[in-house]
Amino acid sequence: MIDLFSKVRASEINLLPYDGEVNYYGRLFSSQQASHYYDTLFHHIEWRNDEAVIFGKRIITKRKVAWYGDMEFEYTYSNVTKLALPWTKALLELKAVAEQKTGETYNSCLLNLYHSGEEGMAWHSDGEKDLKKNGAIGSMSFGAERKFSFKHKQNKQIVSVILEHGSLLVMKDTTQTHWLHRLPPTKLVTKPRVNLTFRTIVL
C-alpha cells in the first residue's frame, strides 16, 4: 500500500519491487470533471465489441473497445488488426493531461469499456511488435473503481492497486518484459468503467 502521509509524492513511488516501473498518480480530476469525461467517453466513443482469434476460432467479447491515434495506425493483438480513428476533442484533452503529468508522449489510445465488474481482463503483457519497446503506457480510468494486479513472470509475486475514478497509472521501462497484468473480475462492482491506455506506436 502507498503511504499517503509520506513526504515523497505517491507518483514518485514505484509500485513494483524490481524488474520494471509502475507509477500511480491517483486522481487527476475533481469528481465533477471525472464524471464529465466518463459521460463523454461512454456516449461518444465509437465502441465495438472486442474480438480475438484463438486456435482459429473468432471470439466476440462483451467488453467493448475503441482505437484512436495520430493517423490510421494498425494495431494487432489477439490475431485481430484494428485501424485507428481520428482523435476526438475529449481524447486530445486527456492525452495532453497524461503527457504533462508523466513527461511522456503518446500517439495512440486503446480504450476499453467494462459494463460491470464481471467483465475483466486475463493475465497478459503489452508486448505487441507495433508498440515502442519499453515505452510508457498511460492508463487513465473513469467510472467504477477496480482492482488492477501485476504478476512477476518468474517468481509469480503479485502487486495490486485500486484504480480510482479519474486516476492515472503509468507502466514503463521493462515492466512488460518481466510482469503480467490483469483486471480481475468481481461481482462486487455493478457499474461500468472506461479505461484509456495511451501508447506509442512505432512505424
Score class of each variant (00 low, 15 high):
174 T>L: 14
182 R>C: 15
177 T>E: 09
164 E>A: 02
158 I>H: 10
179 W>F: 12
148 F>R: 00
150 F>G: 04
160 S>T: 11
150 F>V: 09
149 S>W: 02
154 Q>G: 03
184 P>Y: 09
194 V>W: 05
149 S>F: 04
160 S>F: 01
171 M>N: 08
166 G>M: 09
148 F>V: 01
176 Q>D: 12
171 M>Q: 10
196 L>P: 03
156 K>Q: 14
146 R>M: 03
189 V>H: 11
144 A>K: 06
184 P>V: 12
178 H>Y: 15
195 N>M: 06
177 T>L: 09
179 W>Y: 13
160 S>I: 02
187 K>A: 07
175 T>D: 12
167 S>Y: 01
162 I>R: 05
181 H>C: 06
154 Q>F: 14
149 S>H: 06
186 T>Q: 13
178 H>G: 09
160 S>G: 03
187 K>P: 03
181 H>P: 03
148 F>M: 02
178 H>T: 14
159 V>F: 10
179 W>V: 14
185 P>W: 05
170 V>D: 03
182 R>P: 05
183 L>N: 08
151 K>F: 09
168 L>Q: 03
185 P>L: 08
152 H>T: 10
196 L>I: 11
179 W>I: 14
159 V>G: 10
165 H>E: 05
164 E>I: 05
193 R>H: 00
155 N>W: 02
150 F>D: 06
178 H>W: 14
179 W>E: 10
152 H>M: 08
153 K>C: 08
178 H>V: 14
177 T>P: 01
166 G>H: 10
164 E>W: 00
150 F>Q: 02
152 H>I: 06
160 S>H: 05
144 A>S: 14
192 P>V: 07
155 N>P: 07
194 V>F: 04
174 T>C: 15
179 W>R: 02
179 W>L: 14
166 G>T: 07
182 R>N: 12
186 T>P: 07
146 R>V: 01
191 K>Q: 13
151 K>D: 14
188 L>P: 00
157 Q>F: 14
175 T>K: 11
184 P>W: 12
175 T>C: 13
154 Q>V: 12
174 T>S: 15
188 L>H: 11
169 L>E: 03
183 L>W: 02
196 L>Q: 05
193 R>V: 04
170 V>W: 06
142 F>R: 05
189 V>M: 14
174 T>D: 13
166 G>Y: 15
163 L>M: 10
150 F>E: 09
142 F>H: 02
161 V>D: 00
193 R>Y: 00
179 W>N: 08
161 V>T: 09
161 V>K: 00
148 F>E: 01
189 V>A: 15
143 G>I: 03
